[in-house]
Design a protein around this nucleic acid. Sequence first.
DNA 1: CAAATAGTGTCTCTAAGACAATATCAC
DNA 2: GTGATATTGTCTTAGAGACACTATTTG
Lengths: 270, 270
Amino acid sequence: MNSEFDYLNSYNINDYERPSVTADIVVFTIRSKEAENFRKDPKNALSLLLIKRGRHPYKDQWALPGGFLSPGETIEQCALREIEEETSVTPASLMSVGMFSEPGRDPRGWIISNAFVSILGGSEGPQRAGDDADDAQWFDVNFEQNENGLYMLRLRHEDICLSAVLKEEKSRFGMTSFVIEDRGSLAFDHAAIIAGALTALRSRAKDFEMIFDFLPEKFTLTELQNVQETVMNISLLSANFRRKVAGLVEETDEYTEGAGHRPAKLYRRK
Amino acid sequence: MNSEFDYLNSYNINDYERPSVTADIVVFTIRSKEAENFRKDPKNALSLLLIKRGRHPYKDQWALPGGFLSPGETIEQCALREIEEETSVTPASLMSVGMFSEPGRDPRGWIISNAFVSILGGSEGPQRAGDDADDAQWFDVNFEQNENGLYMLRLRHEDICLSAVLKEEKSRFGMTSFVIEDRGSLAFDHAAIIAGALTALRSRAKDFEMIFDFLPEKFTLTELQNVQETVMNISLLSANFRRKVAGLVEETDEYTEGAGHRPAKLYRRK
DNA sequence: CAAATAGTGTCTCTAAGACAATATCAC
DNA sequence: GTGATATTGTCTTAGAGACACTATTTG
């Protein structure tokens, strides 16, 4: 038996039908709202990037940034490339959320998507979205479970309010995912992707894992606390927060200035 | 502008080159070793399923079970189908580990893989592997970091010992993955997939998350503790373990019998 | 000085870890 | 009884949460 013959017959790449593969990215950032008066610090809001589709299907509806995997790149490189094309910025982090492969999820055909969470912030600060022809905007995020056990996802940008309804589904195999009850004008299955991304982000933020990516290199402990509170939609006591993160940061000898109240020491991630 | 015209021109599914997509599954189970004497309980070993390839490439080398995604199924359904084809058993759990899409990972062409962790055990007990023509076997798992910081993965089945060397790589984007230094006769990049799967499994096992899937419906607390110890390669004090899992289980009124020592109460997952 | 945030001290309560002691079965 | 595992109790220590208090800046 000839081994080259075996090899060539073992797999003809054209024998199998193949899906198109995309990467869709949920890009988060934290934006400051205007403060009430000169003394108060600004409030923060968790935001994510959506793009208004210029084509069918779902023309004129809002969708996650993303695009098709090209030969010669990894799916992570594809995700980074798409973010950079949209925002002209390299994100601080990239985390896989999972594969979305439900048949029929894309009316154009057999298209499966690897979803990612990415965070912009860091030294660049929140970027302008949509520098080119695309209509891209940051939407404030609100995601909560209501009294019926359903999850409400609300995304708001100025007058635009997208409101999706999802149900948590625990499969027999230990995976939990979200099923769309009402996609609320979000394109494709992107409401379910966003719900999964938020859940993954919050789970990581609990252990202080991705919260540094929202901030520049040097930051105050209060800023760090605000990030965790904003991401997880909770409220913490500062004394306890400081003790918990004490081992994760190191002091610098710099302070904030001109804040209308006592200056705060700047820290750096350890 | 005609909207149907727009739609049809927006995406021609044949315009883009497409990869083949596979699901590869790291199927774990726990196997009992013979006890030293009639009083002692049997020792356990964490094992995973490998299949000896009958074809090129990597002919006669060991690889993870897996197969190509078919139209009309999700990637999870594909993974389950492949496990059932190999073992004739439906696993208790299925967890995604991530996408492996490095160009060149498969000499047959552009093939990307979604890796899964799955656990067999439960009431069926560890299954015979390789009922059909395939040569499938359970390999005992040993995975440790050595003094140089490299990770050693050793898989052993009777005389066969596969030994791979991996390096942990933290990308700038917060992801950690394993890079193969020596694949140790494991086919493709499967050594890296196994390393990632083990890391994911251990991380879950720390919170008691997948350990129940290794056991039948009713089990003793010592059996449960043995699972966690075997999976994580650690040793625990039983008094503390019992307190920690007390909230996760509920008593039954049954006991073990004929064990050569004091019988143990059987519990059920709550 | 007033308003606001920065930062420290301390009390309670819970949980983890270590270890000692007792219980119960098969042979 | 002996050898093994099963099960409970308790001591110590670490950490989380709550809350009170002090410190420091700008206008």
